[in-house]
Amino acid sequence: MIEINNLVKIYNDKRILNGLNLSIKEKKRTTIIGQSGCGKSTLLRLILGLEKFESGEILIDGTSLSGLKEREKNKIRLGFGMVFQSSALFDSLTVAENVGLVLKEHTNMTTGQIKSKVMNALDLVELGSAYNKLPSELSGGMKKRVAIARAIINDPKVIFFDEPTTGLDPITSTVIEQLINKLTDYIGATSVIVTHQISTILNVSQEIYMFVEGKAIKTEAADKIMKSKDKIIYNFVNGLVE
C-alpha cells in the first residue's frame, strides 16, 4: 500500500530521517513508536506531500510521490485522513463545520446529508453535544476527538493518527482505540498510528516499527513487545533510562 525506501529528510543540517525503510500494509494497523523528536510526525507529513524530502522514495499504491503535480497529490490526499498531533482544528469554524468541511468542498452532498454524516462521526467519538461549539471552547482531548471525526468523515482508505490518545483519560482512550480497531476491522481502512501510550501500542498494533537514529526497526508483535529481546526496544517500552 505504502512503501518507503531509503527516505532521507534533513532539517537545518540534521538528518532526521536517515535512510528509512518501512512498509505499510493494506487494511492493517501499523504503529510507529520512538523518542520525541525522532521524526514520526515528519514521516506522516512527508507521505501527505506537505513537505519535500532530500532523497529516497515514497510509493503509494506503486506510484512515486516525488514526480506528482499538486493536483495529483490532492487526489491522493482525498483518500487519506489525517489526525494532526496538535489537532489543527480551524479556529474560525465550528466543530460541525470543521468535521464537514471536506464534504462541503469536495462533494455534491446537500447540507442535510452532510449534517447527518457529521452527527454520525461526532457520535463515534462521543462528542455529539459539541456540534455547535467553537474549537476554543473545547478541551485538548475533545479537540483531538473532533480531529478524529474530521479525519474519518469521508471514509478515507488510509488514516493517519498522530498521537490519537495522548491527553485522553483511560476510558476515552479505550473508546478511541476501539474506534481505530473498528475502522480497520469493519470498514477496511489502513491505519498508521503514532503513539507513546503503552495501552494504545498494545491494543491497536498489528505491526510495530520503532524509529531509531533516523531508521525504522520492526519490532515484535504487540503481545511480545514488552519483553522484547532488542535492548533498545525493551528499554523504550519499559521506560528505562540507560
Binding site: L48, E70, F80, F84, S86, L89, D91, E105
Partner: peptide, 18 residues
C-alpha cells in the same frame, strides 16, 4: 500566522484545499 504554527495550513492542504 496562527494557522501556520498550529498546523491548520497543513490540515487545509491535507484535505486537498489550496
Amino acid at each position: 500566522a496562527a494557522m501556520k504554527v498550529t498546523e491548520q495550513l497543513d490540515a487545509l492542504k491535507s484535505m486537498a484545499l489550496d
